[in-house]
């Protein structure tokens, strides 16, 4: 394991407003490693999925539940993110991680949160126990920066968006 360059820990209540807050925090912190736009978007999406799950499923709308998020930046450009809740826990993790599986179809949940987290990070580990809560660890190694962003990150089009992205979906 490589040296830890920087670390942060944050806790906030399980409110929908904090989904955007958590994404913004992670994004601002990870900026220290100068990630590609696509990598930043992927990590923000993975964090959004994890925090949303804690709010929607873990605490089931109990707005006083506490979510903690820890982020570490390592010297080998690895980003480590842990997100925990002390909510209801997951009865069957294997089943929960199946694409399209959801326990909340009436709320238009797509059942794809875990699929998104897996696709947009290098590894995802889930620990959970019923009645005690859930802990997720996601890791992603950012690519080395080369001088010319357009070489690796896709050429940006007129509207300033990136038209090619990094890791293809698995």
């Amino acid at each position: 394991m490589k040296r830890c360059l920087n670390e942060m820990k944050l806790s906030f209540p399980a409110r929908g407003e904090n989904e955007a807050f958590a994404r913004a925090c992670v994004s601002a912190f990870i900026a220290q490693l100068d990630p590609y736009v696509s990598e930043l978007a992927e990590l923000k999406t993975a964090v959004s999925e994890a925090v949303t799950n804690a709010i929607v499923h873990g605490y089931r709308g109990r707005r006083d539940g506490i979510i903690t998020m820890q982020v570490r930046l390592c010297s080998d450009r690895r980003v480590y993110i842990r997100i925990r809740d002390k909510g209801c826990g997951i009865a069957d993790i294997t089943q929960a991680m199946q694409p399209l599986f959801t326990t909340a179809p009436e709320e238009e949940r797509a059942g794809l949160g875990f699929s998104v987290m897996e696709s947009f990070t290098d590894s995802l580990r889930v620990k959970s126990s019923r009645g005690r809560g859930t802990s997720l660890v996601m890791e992603k190694t950012l690519r080395e920066r080369s001088g010319d962003e357009s070489v690796k990150d896709g050429v940006s089009n007129k509207s300033g968006r990136k038209s090619g992205t990094g890791s293809p979906l698995r």
Binding site: R23, A41, S48, E108, R109, A110, S159
Partner: peptide, 17 residues
């Protein structure tokens, strides 16, 4: 979607619905 900056799987649920 031209002015959408960010979307997670909640957006998939929105489109599917």
């Amino acid at each position: 979607f031209s002015a959408v900056n960010f979307m997670d799987s909640s957006g998939i649920g929105l489109v599917m619905g």
